[in-house]
Simulated scan of single mutants.
Amino acid sequence: MSKTILVVGSVLLFLVPALSANAQEQKDEETVTVTGEVLDMVCYLDHGASGPKHAKCARTCINSGLPVGIKDKSGKVYLVVGEHKPLNRELAGRAASVVTLKGKLVSRDGINLLEDAEIIK
């Protein structure tokens, strides 16, 4: 991985827990269902990587603990976390595939988080 990917990944690893903690303080959370492509957030943010051609790399990155996300058909991207735990193990095998997740939507400063997410299908 390039130095840029490692830097972005490190920043996101610290950002996700902070967002999750702040989300608990926010009172206007809503439960939503999101259907979209499972993304490796580092490669997606660094160089727009997504889709079937990137699936193998995305699985590797997600399995290594880098942040996982989902991009819906409108192009909205969400960081994804389970209930006080990452969902990497559950989502790595579905990298670049379309899944449906249900969770609490929290948005702050332009960043979207699907918290307490669970896989629907």
Rank of each mutant, 00 (worst) to 15 (best):
H84K: 15
G75E: 08
Y78A: 11
V16R: 13
K56P: 02
L113W: 08
V98C: 03
H54R: 00
G93K: 05
H47V: 13
E115N: 15
D72M: 05
A95F: 01
K85S: 14
A95T: 06
G82N: 05
R108C: 02
N112T: 00
E115H: 12
L19W: 04
A92M: 08
L91N: 00
M1N: 14
V80I: 08
G75W: 05
E37L: 05
A18C: 12
T31G: 09
L105N: 14
V77I: 06
V34R: 01
K85H: 07
A49L: 02
G75H: 07
M1H: 13
L12E: 02
S2N: 15
K121G: 09
L39K: 01
T100E: 13
Y44F: 11
G65T: 12
T35K: 15
P86N: 13
N63A: 15
L113S: 10
K104C: 02
S107Q: 12
I5V: 06
S97M: 13
V38F: 09
I62N: 12
L45E: 01
V16I: 12
K102D: 01
P52S: 09
R89A: 08
E30W: 04
L15W: 01
L114K: 00
A96M: 08
N112C: 03
Y44N: 10
M41P: 05
D46A: 14
V106Y: 15
K85Q: 07
N88T: 06
G48D: 11
E30L: 11
Y44T: 04
R94G: 00
G103I: 01
S20M: 04
G75I: 04
L6W: 11
I5P: 00
H54G: 00
R89N: 04
H84W: 09
L87F: 09
D116G: 11
D46E: 13
K104L: 00
S10M: 08
S50E: 09
E29Y: 04
V8S: 03
T31W: 05
K71H: 10
K53G: 13
V38H: 05
V11M: 14
A55E: 07
A92V: 11
K104E: 03
S64R: 10
E30S: 15
R59M: 07
S2Y: 12
A92D: 07
V11Q: 15
V81Q: 15
Y44I: 10
K3G: 13
V16A: 04
C57W: 02
K27W: 03
G82W: 03
G51I: 04
T33A: 01
I5Y: 09
C57L: 03
I111C: 10
P52H: 07
G75D: 04
G103W: 05
V34I: 15
A58C: 06
I5L: 14
L113C: 07
A96V: 01
V34K: 09
L12G: 02
P17H: 08
E118V: 15
S50T: 10
H54K: 06
G36T: 04
E90P: 00
V98T: 15
E25C: 12
D28R: 09
L87W: 03
Q26I: 06
M41D: 11
I62R: 12
R108I: 14
V34T: 08
L13M: 10
A117R: 00
T4L: 14
S74G: 08
L6S: 11
I120D: 02
L113A: 08
